[in-house]
Design a protein around this nucleic acid. Sequence first.
RNA 1: CGGGGCGUAGCGCAGCCUGGUAGCGCGCCUGCUUCGGGAGCAGGAAGUCGGAGGUUCAAAUCCUCUCGCCCCGACCA
Length: 621
Amino acid sequence: MKIKVNAIALKSHVLEWLASATGSHPNLVLAPENLDPIHLKSREICCTMRRSRYLLNTVKETPKEAVVISHQLMLRAGMIKQLASGIYSFLPLALRSLRKIEQIVREEMNAAGAIELLMPSVQPSELWVESGRWQIYGKELLRMKDRKDNDFCYGPTHEEVVTDIVRKEVRSYKDLPLNLYQIQTKFRDEVRPRFGLMRGREFIMKDAYSFDVDDPSADRSYQAMYDAYKRIFSRCGLAFRPVEADSGLIGGSYTHEFHVLAQSGEDEILSCDQCDYAANVERCERQIETRSAAARPFEKVATPGKKSIEDVSAFLNVPAENCLKTLLYQNGETILACCLAGDRELNETALKNLFDGEEVFLVDPQTAQEKYGLPIGFVGPIDLPQSITALVDREIAEGGPWVCGANQVDHHFVGVTADQIRGKIVNLGQTRAGDRCPRCQNGHFTSHRGIEVGHVFKLGTKYSERMGATFLDAQGSSQPCIMGCYGIGVSRTMAAAIEQNFDEQGIIWPLQIAPFHVNLLNLDPSAELTQQTCDSLVTALEAKGIEVLYDDRDERPGFKFKDADLIGLPLQIIVGMRGLQGGTVEIKARRTGQRQQVALAGAVDEVIAQLQELGWGKERV
RNA sequence: CGGGGCGUAGCGCAGCCUGGUAGCGCGCCUGCUUCGGGAGCAGGAAGUCGGAGGUUCAAAUCCUCUCGCCCCGACCA
């Protein structure tokens, strides 16, 4: 009863505020001319959503199939729904975030001079046969036949299609440079889909393709994309790092990956603590430092049962870094003896690249013994059979003396000097944290985990030559276009954002890609006063272009708090009778957890102020 | 593709070994109470036990085959 009396007394006060806040009667919908024009765009696509009328079902328990945090939270927050392995529906909440990422990508791509188009997702095999990839792409390419039995595939990427367009449309150097992009659903029949959106089979990707007349121009196109990518991920509010990368099978000479930094990242990246060199561990160079040890005479010693570097090191009292390990790899019929320091890992990517990216496999111990007479655990580079190709890591070639296997069970050599080791000197060892940077020769590497969300490639003329994408230069002679390709995993970026921004309670959206800006919680939805207050807050916030998710459901307060934290919108406005009796509402910042009681009259201004602090209204970074 | 695991109500699971009535928690619907951190009580709806074949008087349960999903290793946005 008491509350009722207070409520009535309050009502006039609230109505007064409403009139001043919206400039009209609260029940009146604002006419368009009352809207701040700069916010019209966001209003068009983002009306307030009432939870009672929205498709958003959250769950308390973590679904068992989800092992990474983004997958768990997206399922719990009702963002995605699995349809088949690696194939997900984006439910409304997720779609809103996705659209925001797409919009940032569009704006920055357009600003960088790229032109949007949309290519078919289903592609005829002819183009792929022409580029040579129908044969080599393997099972990852989802192939299908139409009713006339013609071969098609669902596009995992669009080099072929875009090159086909360009060869038909571009004739003169005057038509170049050209950079075409699209945002589209791709399908790659991954060997093992996992981690929800992080490694799905169907995913949304922005792919861009540049065509230039010569190398300097192609390099400018590449640089423009590199810069655009930096702006894109900054605007998404993510901590990221561009790194030099391995070009892998797509080929090409020059490539960077963009990684969102997160503990759960699948890639290791190394960055110099002094200069700006950073690279994927697969690709990272290092400054070779000579490892010397006390000279000792060359001799064979017995090392009974000491197979591992650890055992040998302990047994002979020689540090692992002065021991030498020899790994037997196989490339086709060729057997490779790969020598590197005992404390260093082999970089398989580097090894593969010595063989044009062909697969290499470790030789199993039984085969090594039976076919080549080499006892695994005691293999060394000295007196290897002629049929075996020895590869020696540069680190070995410059140091010594070393301890190494004697190619005889239970025996090692000690006092081995570098000139005793025959073999081709190459870079085989994997760089690791603490190694010296080769660029500035001053700093040392630190290690991070990263999620690859973007990749820029300089492709060269591989596709344009094969598919005849040529133009006439100023001299009238035909030249192949120099190509580049540039991808951003849009749906993966959304997942990566969550991997980087969460706590025990749920997601913490960066404002720029949050599905809504504000979560308005009506704690007493059956009370007329809270209803009216919320309605008018909604109107006032909308008029400022602020996107509101309004929890008007008939649920208990605790339930709504948990839900709001799980969904993780940047700000929560909490409206309850308790606060309204003092004429206040509460504003809670999701990331800091900081709560503030503010007078109703100042609530919208305070929300705007807090949103601005989170980066609201900053179009460009 | 190799290795492992799991398919029973929308979700999480028990039941299976030792064949015979399909069960629990969450969620959902109704009512009452409750109401600032995922409420309580009472009532209710909901399952071709992944599919096919077999054994049996009788199969969620035993056998065979199949499909799907998840996890661990080699690929990639």
